[in-house]
Nucleic acid binder design. Structure first.
Lengths: 220, 220
DNA sequence: ACAATTATTTAGTTTTGTCTAAAACTTATT
DNA sequence: AATAAGTTTTAGACAAAACTAAATAATTGT
């Protein structure tokens, strides 16, 4: 597979909502920052290799084979992201660009050994699940802390309120994107929530709980 | 720089004996497994970008700019090799192919952090020196153990005698390519040599000393 | 010194992935 | 149901990096 083919497969997979539903030529063109005519050409080529299902004017969907290719690229991307954050001390938000390059390195042995070296992680630094060798992975959902039951665990991946004041509060309380939290207790009375963080457990108000998103990986 | 351009620069650097001397079109074609006419085209392009000095029919040499590009690629290649062997437990001889891909990843931050993660290694698993950010590196030489004075230190990189018997002997004595040895003592009487290995020190006969190559990095 | 050999370059194609412009098809609107 | 608007495909071209075949320069042997 060429680099360009891999990028198209990945784009189609993302646009089809991680599923196999049909995607429009224009949508792919926009995603890939290219023109619709170029997309048509490439899609024909991918159809030749039976990586996608394609009928003129009817949109494109990944074949099973194509879906597995997409998942293997995503597996590589997310493992490299874990490596960059855990081992090389990159920050949460710097890793994507580099991982976009690393995901194209061709070596099964490399990925197996990297996986082992990282301790077989289940999620990447953004809380997204890492498919295994066979493309099996747990779905994840993004939810506000206030929507979750006691016992849930996930990676903090975003804020609703991006005001300076709120971000300052998070900083003060040692809460950063990429941190893993577990919900320990929910106070009926005022809706405040006790969560465990790396540095012990803290209680956050309902207001804060409705402004912090966690990425939750379903139990398997 | 494109991938192909980087590969040409690297080939020219190797063919010019890690120097800036002139290299023949045919030699490059052979190294790159391509045709001389393709080389001419690419060399013109590299000359445009003043990465090489080129006059028709006169061969090619790297410019200072080109030499620095070559050294930065080699730096990346060798750092990745150290990573693959030290961190991912690849064996000595499997790493080259993978490193050939990894060396093209574009990110200065990545290489800096990788270097730090590896503890700023001076040599790769084959005993070859790793250039620093500015392209400065210590020259290395390959010598038989029997040619070296007491105190020398280097990485075992090859054998003269590749008979099964000799290789079996090495295995039995826990000597493998990629190991670092130091010469502790040379016995005048019979030319036998005491060397330190990972698992203590051993004495090897003159015959063996004349059949094992070490890669020695000059003191700086 | 000149012919023969070898090395190098030129000229013209090929392939991959892109582009523009025009044509063909769908969908939405009235 | 007809047309307008939007989407997708076709046709023809281009740039990068390769190739083949032919032409030209350099080197070597006698």
């Amino acid at each position: 597979m060429t680099l360009s083919e891999e990028d198209y497969i990945k784009a189609i997979y993302h646009l089809s909502d991680f599923n196999s539903k049909s995607v429009a030529t224009n949508a792919i063109a926009e995603q890939m920052k290219t023109k619709p005519s170029s997309v048509t050409d490439m899609v024909k080529k991918l159809a030749e290799k039976s990586l996608v299902n394609y009928k003129k004017y009817q949109g494109v969907s990944l074949s099973e084979k194509g879906r597995l290719v997409a998942l293997s690229i995503i597996r590589k991307h997310r493992l490299w992201e874990v490596f960059l954050v855990d081992k090389l001390n990159f920050s949460w938000d710097e890793v994507h660009v580099v991982a976009e390059q690393l995901e194209h390195i061709k070596s099964d042995a490399l990925i197996d050994k990297l996986d082992a070296h990282l301790g077989y992680p289940k999620v990447d630094p953004h809380g997204d699940p890492i498919p295994n060798k066979d493309g099996v992975f747990t779905k994840s959902v993004k939810k506000l802390i206030s929507e979750l039951p006691v016992g849930s665990q996930g990676v903090c991946v975003g804020v609703n309120d991006s005001s300076a004041a709120f971000l300052k509060f998070l900083d003060k309380n040692n809460i950063a994107l990429g941190d893993t939290f577990k919900i320990l207790e929910i106070e009926e009375f005022d809706g405040s929530v006790t969560i465990s963080t790396r540095s012990g457990s803290i209680r956050i108000s309902k207001q804060i709980a409705t402004n912090l998103f966690l990425e939750i990986v379903d139990e398997e």
